[in-house]
Simulated scan of single mutants.
Amino acid sequence: MKLHVDLATNPYDIMIERGSLTSVGDWARSILNCQKIAIITDDHVASLYAETVQQSLETAGFEIFVFEFLEGEASKNLTTVNNAYDFLLENGLTRGDGIVALGGGVVGDLAGFVASTYMRGIPFLQIPTSLTAQVDSSIGGKTGVNTPRAKNSVGTFAQPKGVFIDPDVLKTLGKRELIEGMGEVIKYGLIDDVDLWEILETLDGSPESILEHVEDIIYHSCNVKRKIVVEDEFEGGIRMYLNFGHTIGHAIEQTAGYGKVMHGEAVAIGMVQISRVAEKKGLMPAGMTDKIINMCAKFGLPTDHKPWLVNDLYAALTHDKKASGNTIKTVIVPKLGSAAINQIPLEEMKEYLEK
């Protein structure tokens, strides 16, 4: 399967093919004309797939260097970025060389940020290995790292030269890591793709059912993001729809401590919470929150978080990138398969945090 991200300045393809990781070198050679490639990955993914990817890239004629960092959201910071810069300089990578992001969302965000800023920008490829990264974070060109005050508060827009998805790598994910990715998948069904929602309704929620239908899940999810990014690359309008559940979700991730609540879990909780209040305000149809709760619960995603500390969550929200002056943009689902932006006074956001 192939999807084309038809951007005016940097079009690229998303390749989706089971068992294709061993041929990644040929794909990379068709895109990059460089001598050196740095694979940026975490220590866990490196132990599983770095050797396979390195061998394939070397067979295609690239000189390969592998930079590893400690797995987890807590490593997605400027300290790790600086270590990566040092590694690239020590190994003589120039503006004419490239980077491969091999890993989940943390790796993709960080490696993309490094690529977009090193030497004022060098080409990079995404090889996502988690469901969250395959359906969401590897596509669209958002890069970023966390600070102690806010998630993804330092970042760039930088499109990859290509995205290479082998669904078979998901077989090595733990159950929690696989299910976590369904938070983003459910979001896509809610905001844009009724067909995807109907596919999800047919599944029994088990990891086995996810993996059996994962190619369709990935294709539908990537296609939603592709369409939205092509229309609104720099998040000036409808790309905000992709943030359904994220405003509260990011606050949960930060206040819980990075890595304690996984991203897709936080998105699920955020979708439920904002929908519950929006429904009470008449902004979403009656019963929509129950639909979301039931779908999330079927796949084993959390729909609540404890302790629920309203003041702490609100403080985190004031640093959210979607806040502007005294207002904040939230996303709601007025009907299944569509989304809308709801701009409210920042102070009113406290109401959306009340249980």
Rank of each mutant, 00 (worst) to 15 (best):
164 F>H: 09
135 V>Y: 04
160 P>I: 10
122 I>P: 00
115 A>M: 01
194 V>Y: 13
165 I>R: 00
140 G>F: 08
213 H>W: 07
128 P>T: 11
146 N>S: 04
173 L>I: 02
214 V>G: 06
152 N>Q: 10
150 A>K: 01
170 L>T: 08
170 L>W: 08
133 A>K: 09
187 K>H: 11
194 V>A: 13
125 L>W: 00
168 D>Q: 14
195 D>T: 14
160 P>C: 12
221 S>W: 06
225 K>M: 11
124 F>T: 01
124 F>Q: 02
123 P>E: 05
112 G>H: 04
210 I>K: 02
185 V>P: 06
118 Y>T: 04
209 S>C: 11
118 Y>R: 04
150 A>T: 05
171 K>R: 15
199 I>E: 15
218 I>F: 06
161 K>A: 14
145 V>D: 01
199 I>Q: 14
180 E>H: 12
176 R>W: 08
224 V>N: 00
158 A>H: 15
192 D>C: 14
125 L>A: 08
182 M>F: 10
219 Y>F: 14
208 E>S: 14
193 D>S: 06
138 S>M: 08
166 D>A: 10
192 D>T: 11
157 F>E: 11
174 G>S: 13
218 I>H: 07
179 I>C: 05
202 T>L: 12
132 T>L: 15
208 E>L: 12
118 Y>P: 01
118 Y>V: 08
222 C>M: 02
194 V>E: 15
112 G>M: 03
181 G>W: 00
124 F>I: 04
183 G>Q: 01
110 L>P: 05
162 G>C: 01
163 V>K: 01
203 L>F: 09
208 E>C: 06
129 T>K: 05
200 L>G: 02
196 L>I: 07
147 T>R: 11
154 V>Y: 14
171 K>V: 10
177 E>G: 08
139 I>Q: 06
207 P>K: 03
134 Q>W: 03
166 D>K: 04
191 I>Y: 00
141 G>Q: 05
191 I>D: 00
146 N>H: 09
148 P>T: 10
119 M>T: 10
223 N>L: 01
225 K>D: 08
135 V>A: 08
123 P>R: 05
158 A>F: 15
197 W>G: 12
224 V>M: 03
177 E>S: 13
210 I>Y: 02
139 I>R: 01
112 G>R: 05
117 T>N: 12
129 T>A: 06
185 V>S: 06
123 P>L: 02
124 F>M: 04
219 Y>L: 13
173 L>C: 06
177 E>I: 07
173 L>N: 02
171 K>N: 15
184 E>W: 06
179 I>D: 01
201 E>H: 11
215 E>I: 03
152 N>E: 08
195 D>M: 10
177 E>C: 08
205 G>H: 10
224 V>R: 02
181 G>E: 04
195 D>P: 03
125 L>V: 09
220 H>C: 04
194 V>F: 11
111 A>I: 05
180 E>R: 12
198 E>I: 07
143 T>Q: 13
207 P>D: 14
138 S>V: 04
192 D>H: 15
130 S>D: 14
126 Q>M: 15
113 F>D: 00
127 I>S: 01
123 P>I: 03
132 T>Q: 13
183 G>A: 06
160 P>T: 13
206 S>I: 04
123 P>G: 02
142 K>Y: 03
